[in-house]
Amino acid sequence: MLKRLFPSIYVNSIYDIKFEELYNEGYRGIIFDIDNTLVSYDTKHPDERIVTLMEMLKGVGFNVALVSNNNRIRVQTFNEKLQLKAYHKALKPMTRKIKIAMQAISTDRSNTILVGDQIFTDIYGGNRLGLKTILVIPISEKEEWITKIKRNTEKKIIKAYLKRVNKNAAKH
């Protein structure tokens, strides 16, 4: 069970992801969470750096979607500049909206990446579908109370994940 909570990749931020390498490995779709993955929880609109990143990803050949557990107004407001396929109230780790997003961006389990900041929602949801999952360090400590409660357990899982990664790296 613990392995289902481990990300495929763990990075500091979305800007540390090697997107071109992932494209060269055959990945064609990226599904991003919004809050504390792309921007802080209380940031309404993407900044120019996010807009530029999304344009770069499309230029490389990726199809991109947003899947958030947040409400419709939050997701629509954030997506005004980006104009991506975007889904709200996803109820991650449930997989229904992730599957809908993959269909909308014409990808499948074998060539889709899910990027998020939470283990119990984003990573577990993506892993349930067999996607490549990328965990990023949350942008801000400001978040909903329920998320704050889960963060202590997430820290223990990340510690176990890093221990496993380091053990495997020592073998090679």
Rank of each mutant, 00 (worst) to 15 (best):
residue 61 G to T: 10
residue 38 L to V: 10
residue 171 K to I: 09
residue 90 A to M: 07
residue 25 E to R: 14
residue 33 D to A: 04
residue 106 S to W: 02
residue 66 L to F: 01
residue 31 I to E: 01
residue 57 L to Q: 11
residue 111 N to L: 00
residue 85 K to I: 04
residue 152 N to Y: 13
residue 32 F to M: 06
residue 76 Q to H: 10
residue 127 N to S: 07
residue 159 K to H: 14
residue 108 D to F: 08
residue 82 L to S: 09
residue 107 T to D: 02
residue 162 L to N: 15
residue 106 S to T: 10
residue 122 D to E: 12
residue 30 I to K: 07
residue 86 A to V: 02
residue 27 Y to S: 11
residue 79 N to Q: 05
residue 12 N to A: 14
residue 4 R to H: 12
residue 76 Q to M: 07
residue 59 G to M: 06
residue 39 V to Q: 07
residue 53 L to Y: 06
residue 47 D to E: 07
residue 150 K to W: 05
residue 164 R to D: 01
residue 123 I to Y: 04
residue 118 Q to G: 05
residue 82 L to E: 02
residue 82 L to N: 10
residue 17 I to F: 01
residue 9 I to V: 13
residue 89 K to H: 03
residue 73 I to D: 04
residue 106 S to V: 03
residue 83 Q to A: 10
residue 172 H to P: 00
residue 28 R to F: 09
residue 115 V to T: 01
residue 139 I to N: 07
residue 151 R to I: 00
residue 72 R to D: 07
residue 1 M to G: 12
residue 163 K to C: 03
residue 74 R to Q: 10
residue 111 N to T: 08
residue 140 S to R: 13
residue 97 K to Q: 11
residue 101 A to P: 03
residue 165 V to F: 08
residue 130 G to I: 06
residue 79 N to K: 02
residue 99 K to V: 03
residue 103 Q to V: 11
residue 136 V to Y: 02
residue 155 K to F: 00
residue 125 G to F: 05
residue 124 Y to V: 01
residue 144 E to T: 13
residue 37 T to Y: 06
residue 169 A to M: 08
residue 38 L to A: 10
residue 134 I to S: 03
residue 98 I to E: 01
residue 120 F to V: 06
residue 88 H to G: 06
residue 48 E to I: 06
residue 155 K to L: 04
residue 93 P to F: 02
residue 162 L to Y: 13
residue 104 A to Q: 14
residue 95 T to K: 04
residue 159 K to Q: 14
residue 146 I to L: 15
residue 145 W to F: 03
residue 80 E to S: 15
residue 119 I to C: 11
residue 114 L to T: 02
residue 101 A to I: 06
residue 56 M to G: 10
residue 93 P to C: 10
residue 42 D to R: 09
